[in-house]
């Protein structure tokens, strides 16, 4: 499990160093006032697509020797409704779930409130799940 911890450390360092944890950067993105966030997400996706293509092409296996099977995502309506709600939350808080953890680590202790509220939101979703369209 230490390897996943260390991957997280790396991920957290990148999130802070690239300033994608910044409320200001998120506001710029949603006002089309800067290319920065689009560059980060776009180049991350291109790198990810190439990586998975290489993994599939050369049938690369895991360290444990298993075949690698990246997840597939079936469509459900939550991707629209939940996606919009998350978009609202992202623009208000300036943070998606990864940055919430990184910001707390970076010393913004009040973001604990936002994180706990996000856990509460997840919990309420669990309670209402049967009643929501999927």
């Amino acid at each position: 499990m230490i390897k996943y911890f260390l991957s997280g450390v790396l991920f957290g360092v990148i999130l802070v160093k690239s300033e994608v944890v910044s409320w200001w950067r998120i506001q710029e993105m949603f006002r089309l006032e800067s290319f920065h966030m689009y560059g980060v997400i776009g180049s991350a996706v291109v790198t990810g697509i190439l990586s998975i293509w290489i993994i599939k092409k050369f049938r690369i296996r895991t360290w444990g020797g298993e075949p690698i099977v990246p997840k597939t995502v079936p469509f459900q309506k939550g991707q629209i409704f939940g996606g919009l709600l998350f978009g609202f939350g992202w623009a208000i808080t300036g943070a998606c779930p990864g940055p919430l953890f990184a910001l707390i680590g970076a010393g913004f202790d009040v973001i604990v409130v936002t994180l706990l509220s996000a856990v509460a939101g997840t919990y309420v979703y669990g309670l209402l799940r049967e009643k929501l369209p999927h």
Partner: peptide, 20 residues
């Protein structure tokens, strides 16, 4: 902070994922 965070948690789970 509170409403925004709630929307992040509720929305991402309903959508089945977040930015990552």
């Amino acid at each position: 902070m509170v409403v925004g965070g709630f929307l992040v948690g509720f929305g991402t789970r309903w959508a089945g994922g977040c930015t990552s």
